[in-house]
Design a protein around this nucleic acid. Structure first.
Lengths: 108, 108
DNA sequence: TTTGTTGTTCGCAAAATTACGAACAATATT
DNA sequence: AATATTGTTCGTAATTTTGCGAACAACAAA
């Protein structure tokens, strides 16, 4: 057993991926990335699920760092967190780029 | 409520992301992408978990389409599925690229 | 102060995920 | 035929995820 643990990069990439691992959350992120509007109510309107559930998904996205939210009474504004977005973008890009291009794998 | 459903792209991206949403599976994918070797035993050796669990993770990765496996008695060879890998790569790239670059979002 | 609007949190239920050891299956080897 | 090697599957347990309605909290307006 060479290493037996996961490194920070693997953990972080997995965290991002996990946050993106649900259609609702992809939809939310795409909606926010378009920035038609940022309010909870508008996000909720786009989705086929209860607002309590939307709120939970938003919480998870916040925990992943990909978005952040702030209260603007009486509403709540959610936005893409640019820094983390760019970081995730880079990490996924590097992840997918890091593949051997020879044919040493002789699977069909 | 505008749409009320998720489109194929959102579902597919979420499926890829979900498959990648665990450090073990990221580690497996990175290991296979490096292609030092493709056999179950070698993958298993790299990971700090029981082989039954490794087998399960490999099954999920197969279900996502990102890898495929074939029996080569007495071993089992696992490989990155190039087509799906490239597809995922493109989908993540497009996803992250599709963000507004003006400052219409006035979050701090 | 009462009412309305906007979201979050709580409590619960169902389903999925993660993990393990033991048992099993498939194939070589002796 | 008996044995060894390699992985998968089974059964189980603990935890997490997903989803909802109801209750609640915060604030604005009447």
């Amino acid at each position: 057993m060479s290493n037996k643990e996961y490194n920070i990069n693997q953990e972080q990439l997995a965290r991002f991926a996990k946050a993106m691992g649900h259609p609702t959350r992809i939809a939310i992120l795409q909606f926010l990335a378009k920035q038609t509007t940022c309010y909870f109510g508008d996000i909720n309107e786009e989705l086929p699920i209860a607002k309590a559930t939307v709120s939970q998904h938003l919480k998870e996205l916040k925990n992943s760092g990909l978005i952040h939210g702030e209260v603007e009474p009486p509403k709540v504004r959610y936005c893409i967190n640019r820094e983390m977005w760019d970081m995730a973008c880079t990490m996924f890009k590097d992840f997918f780029a890091n593949i051997q291009h020879n044919d040493s794998c002789d699977c069909k």
